[in-house]
Design a protein around this nucleic acid. Structure first.
Lengths: 208, 208
DNA sequence: CAAACGCGAGCGAACAGTCGCTCGCGTTTA
DNA sequence: TAAACGCGAGCGACTGTTCGCTCGCGTTTG
């Protein structure tokens, strides 16, 4: 018997279980193509029960997106910033690549972006999240510039935007090119950026 | 002249008209959310007639994607490569930004990527297209390196991939952040890359 | 010249199916 | 017992697609 008792699992626990099941379905089919029936089957629940925990399919999608964002925010918060800019970026890249290799999560990311282009609520959430993430990266860049570790010609905001954009683009590309060697490319990206930032002339002050 | 008794419009012309109407609807609603009814209304045709020109909704989507790709291929073919790498890139960026400002096309691009993550046919087409585009860019980079115009430390493939990725990422970002100053950022990207490539010493041979 | 005809573009109601979602009811828990 | 939980048949709306049909033009025929 499946002791599906009330107190066997708490409300949030059941929510998370549904979310996890839904995530799998969304990854496989995309947000729109995935049907509630599939999600219910994946969660091993009836529609009525699922709708007890999420008021609508959209609510489910939004919850999923929010969870993903929380994950990323936590990740960037845990960055080893004390080791300098490049190492921190490497760690961030490593984290992103792990997602890539966990196949499917990147599909979800693209799907999320597509959703954002239609759903203003999702768009706002994503925008806000990016602003926070990019802001932190920019301040790291600025700190490195002030300390003289890297050149100062580049606007920190532009650079941080470039970095995010490059990795997002890489993820996008990996979506339809599964054999792409993302790891090598990411490393190449970082090498290029590092060189551009003047890590080749680490101690010289008169850079220009 | 023509054998078949077409009316005042030829078959391809009608196809294109439908495609154009469909494009508008897709931009507004996305591929999945757009209904055939909407498309028919936009094209000012009945379903029966539309299905005379396109065998299915998917066929319509694929045709649209293909047209968009052809546009890009033509664009990169018309690049002013003789003026050097950076100017060519600037021209490419300008072209991309015009798309951005033509509001909507970027949504379609994200939608296309999302579609590719599920539809292998679309994915293959996109992959192929990117390989061609990136290949040409890489050969431009290589030529510039050989001529000594830019530094030779960076793998041309990595650099061209980085450039495409950065701009794709920028487009993606613009999707959910309409107020983003894409023009300024694109310029910043190119400045950064140009500086990294050592274009500030344009004529000197002993670059590194 | 007029009349008859064939062709095929265009039509739109109807189809079979799927969608997200609801609601009444039996079961379990506190 | 009251309350929370879980169920799943069923709802109305809408989907992409089909098919029997109309009708006007271009050609052939008388």
């Amino acid at each position: 018997m499946k002791s599906a008792g009330t107190r066997n699992r708490t409300f949030p626990e059941r929510q998370e279980a549904i979310l996890k099941a839904a995530c799998g379905v969304f990854v496989r089919s995309g947000f729109h193509a995935a049907s509630m029936k599939d999600i219910c089957a994946a969660a091993d629940m009836s529609p009525g029960s699922v709708y007890r925990y999420f008021s609508s399919k959209d609510a489910l999608i939004e919850a999923l997106i929010e969870a993903d964002q929380a994950r990323w925010t936590a990740a960037i918060d845990g960055l080893p910033i004390e080791k300098g800019l490049l190492p921190a970026l490497e760690a961030l890249a490593e984290l992103g690549l792990q997602d890539l290799e966990n196949r499917g999560l990147l599909n979800l990311w693209v799907e999320t972006a597509a959703e954002a282009s239609r759903n203003p609520v999702v768009a706002a959430r994503l925008r806000e999240s990016y602003q926070v993430l990019q802001g932190r990266l920019a301040s790291l860049v600025q700190a490195a510039q002030r300390s003289g570790a890297i050149e100062s010609d580049t606007d920190p905001l532009v650079l941080s935007c470039l970095i995010f954009a490059a990795f997002d683009g890489l993820i996008l590309r990996a979506t339809f090119d599964p054999h792409l060697d993302t790891r090598a490319l990411a490393r190449g990206f970082l090498e290029f950026i590092g060189r551009a930032l003047g890590s080749r002339t680490p101690r010289k002050k008169g850079s220009r």
